[in-house]
């Protein structure tokens, strides 16, 4: 599908970078289409605030590592490339962790071990392999931004549903009437799986081409 779409976009004259950006948003969305990086999707989506922070941190790492990998793509040795990807990603994850600790200490605490765990998010290494190591920096930047925003969007949708049902709030503000009985299961891992499953089902039902 992507190759087809790519040809279509190229024939309409859209530059490559833009087509990569647009693809990540929905058509190849990390969560709803590729099902990559499921650990944060299930673990930090109980509330909207940590989910958005996680999305932003992942996007930051994705953008930085994709650009760096792209800049050194001609120097990469085939058998050492994964090592280089991991090294690059680890660096930016550490920086993201430090930034969170310095400027958003509460969020850093709420996310806990999941910030260092961005390093094993297969979305990031996947983009480094699929785009960063093949395409010029500007394409890689757009690709990372598209994928990152798509990933953050997915996290936020899941977190909004779960927070509304579990606490009756959104971004910490009460939006459900007082009579609303909170669904405690939505706070727990089971709630994450149920929400993800339903959202995946809905998105496939409405958007997938037959």
């Amino acid at each position: 599908m992507s190759a087809e779409e790519n040809v279509k976009l190229k024939s309409t004259g859209a530059p490559e970078a833009l087509s990569y950006f647009v693809r990540g948003l929905w058509q190849e969305n990390a969560i709803f289409r590729q099902m990559l990086g499921m650990c944060p999707v299930l673990a930090v989506t109980a509330q909207l605030q940590p989910a958005l922070t996680m999305g932003a941190a992942t996007t930051f790492v994705l953008v930085c590592s994709n650009i760096v990998v792209s800049l050194m793509r001609n120097l990469l040795q085939g058998h050492l490339r994964i090592l280089m990807f991991t090294l690059t990603i680890a660096t930016f994850v550490t920086i993201a962790d430090l930034l969170l600790q310095a400027f958003l200490p509460d969020m850093s605490e709420a996310l806990g071990a999941y910030v260092p765990l961005i390093i094993v998010n297969c979305l990031i290494i996947g983009r480094a392999e699929a785009c960063g190591s093949r395409k010029p920096a500007i394409t890689s930047l757009c690709d990372a931004l598209g994928m990152g925003i798509g990933f953050t969007f997915g996290l936020c949708v899941l977190a909004s549903v779960r927070e509304i049902l579990a606490d009756g709030t959104l971004w910490g503000c009460q939006i459900m009437p007082d009579a609303f009985v909170c669904w405690n299961v939505m706070k727990l891992p089971a709630g994450a799986f149920i929400t993800l499953g339903i959202l995946l089902g809905l998105s496939n039902h409405f958007f997938k081409k037959k």
Partner: peptide, 24 residues
Amino acid sequence: LVMAAALVFGLLVAGVHGVLEERI
């Protein structure tokens, strides 16, 4: 490349840490 990158990345992390240490 691995060694050079390790050095550069190490300096980068150390620099960021140095800047943010006080705030943390």
